[in-house]
Amino acid sequence: MRILSDLEKEICTKILKNSGSNNFIANIIDTDLKGVCIEVKRNPKSAGLIFTINSDIPTDEEKENIIFRTEKLSFFILQLVNLLKMLEKDGYILLLERGSNSKQDNKFGRCISNLPSIKHTFSDENIISLLCAYSNKEIYSTDEFERFCKNGFVPRDEQRFKKQITITQSALGIAILALLFNICYNLFKATSDNIKINKNQYQGIIQNTNDIKNKLDFIIKNENDDINSGLLKNINSKLDSIKNQLKKNIKEKIN
């Protein structure tokens, strides 16, 4: 899944908040439809915006407002229906159709029926088809969608990639630490009577080891993948062994 825009993130938040029965497109977009309705017809397929005006002939101010809001709402609706399509495809949401609702025309919004109106008909077949497909269906969020929203709207593929990067960095850090340990150990063994280690150096080595271990503990705690979790636990166990052996070999060498 691609990275979402700020508007799409707001839509996702609304979907999650209202998930379940009676959660339709109309509820998601309702607050933006003051004086406007969205009309969807299915035979033949068409869709458009209905703007309430005060008289049969719109004023210049009303004309400007209609032009501005038509552009704004068209973009919003385009993002909304395409977002629903993407979320459904990726398994983040479920759409439920009840009875014969999908075959009925519908109109929703805040236009005033007993006042004159001006209609703008959408020409984009994609918007029309998606409105016809989704406007009468209830939207249910999944557990995966809830995690997606709570994790800052980061797609699962990117989350997995970041975890793999973190694992790789941790493993590299441990490998470097193990190499330093081997060097120190061999050096102590070769010249055990001549080597002395400053206390600050010792504390620095142990602190670096603890930092890596704490990072691994955090990753393991939040890792859902059994394979990655097992690998990390194995690395963590080896790090404990390295740290304990390192402490044993150099503690007696401190000045």
Rank of each mutant, 00 (worst) to 15 (best):
F145I: 07
I197C: 11
K163Y: 13
K17M: 07
E125R: 15
R156Q: 10
L83V: 10
N186S: 14
L232H: 04
K103Y: 03
K72G: 00
Q164N: 12
I174Y: 13
E64C: 03
K163W: 08
S113L: 12
I174P: 01
S55H: 13
Q104T: 06
N234Q: 04
A171S: 06
M1N: 08
K119Q: 05
V81D: 03
G48V: 06
S113D: 11
S135T: 00
D60A: 10
L95D: 13
L232P: 03
Q207L: 00
L83T: 11
I28W: 08
K213Y: 02
I15K: 10
G99R: 08
N210L: 01
I50N: 05
S135M: 00
N198Y: 06
K34E: 07
N236V: 01
D157Q: 15
G173R: 02
T121C: 05
E144S: 05
N43Y: 06
D56P: 08
E158G: 13
K248I: 08
K89N: 13
A171N: 07
E61M: 09
D105F: 00
I206V: 14
I174V: 15
I235Y: 10
L231V: 10
K213C: 03
A171V: 02
F51R: 02
K45A: 11
N27M: 04
I205M: 07
S100N: 11
D56E: 06
S21D: 04
K247I: 11
L180H: 15
T52C: 05
E88M: 04
G173A: 04
F75S: 13
P58V: 05
G99A: 13
D157F: 09
L7A: 12
T168C: 02
S129F: 10
F148A: 07
I212H: 09
K253L: 14
P155E: 06
T121V: 12
F75C: 07
G152T: 04
N82T: 08
S5N: 08
E10D: 09
L187P: 15
F122R: 13
C12K: 12
N200F: 01
K107M: 04
D6N: 07
Y202I: 11
S21P: 02
R160A: 05
S192W: 09
T191M: 10
T52R: 03
V154E: 14
I206M: 10
F145Q: 02
I139P: 12
T121L: 06
P58T: 06
L80Q: 07
K253R: 14
N200I: 01
V40R: 01
N65A: 08
